[in-house]
């Protein structure tokens, strides 16, 4: 069984935001919601690196643990998906998420923030696969069509990798060995409790 993960090779990411745009377009994400974003560390300084970040689909996910209505479920592939029908928009998942992934349509309206929205790994939600309801709530379900997330597919430098954790880790290791350097698997220790060591 695959364990689907994301990996951003920060030595390749050029901060072009194509992944962000592809995601917004693919899922018709409302204005103001960023399922994926690119953060630049050490901006304008030596050692500047850009990292594309979305929900990491954590092992033992913190968002799922703190949700007061238990609206998350983990798929067989290790994805962390949620039900907008059950979500009450309390915002606790955002406080617990290490990566700032959960997003809300309203910043504030007496605390009624609307239903939480986040990266689905292009895998939709609990509604029937490829149904209209699923598209409206969660965007398209590329996994059900046998495809991988569009952000990674769209990435021009192939900095962003999506797929089975072991395979993308292997690709990353080969890159690091070939070019002789790498800045590490961003967020992996926090999300998956393990990191990629290249020896």
């Amino acid at each position: 069984m695959a364990r689907l993960k994301f990996l951003c090779d920060a030595n390749r990411c050029i901060d072009c935001n194509a992944c962000v745009t592809a995601c917004k377009n693919e899922h018709d994400v409302p204005w103001g919601i960023n399922r994926r974003r690119v953060v630049t560390i050490n901006d304008g300084k030596p050692g500047e690196r850009s990292v594309s970040m979305a929900c990491m689909h954590c092992t033992n996910a913190p968002c799922a643990a703190v949700c007061p209505v238990d609206c998350f479920h983990a798929t067989d592939d290790g994805l962390v998906l949620h039900s907008k029908e059950i979500c009450i928009g309390c915002g606790y998942c955002f406080y617990a998420c290490p990566f700032g992934a959960p997003q809300f349509p309203q910043a504030t309206n007496f605390g009624s923030r609307g239903k939480m929205d986040k990266c689905t790994y292009c895998a939709g939600g609990p509604d029937a696969d490829l149904s209209e309801a699923e598209y409206v709530r969660y965007g398209s379900n590329r996994l059900a069509e046998g495809k991988l997330p569009l952000c990674a597919e769209m990435c021009s430098t192939k900095a962003l990798l999506a797929g089975d954790g072991e395979i993308i880790a292997q690709i990353y290791k080969e890159r690091v060995v070939t070019r002789g350097y790498g800045s590490g698997a961003w967020g992996w220790k926090t999300a998956y409790g393990e990191t990629i060591t290249v020896t």
Binding site: N34, R37, V39, I41, V51, M53, P62, A65, V66, Y95, A96, C97, P98, F99, G100, W186, G187, T190
Partner: peptide, 14 residues
């Protein structure tokens, strides 16, 4: 708030 790439403090709060 999204400029924060990673805040492991979320685990403590959890």
């Amino acid at each position: 708030k999204l400029a924060i790439l990673e805040q492991p403090q979320g685990r403590l709060w959890r």
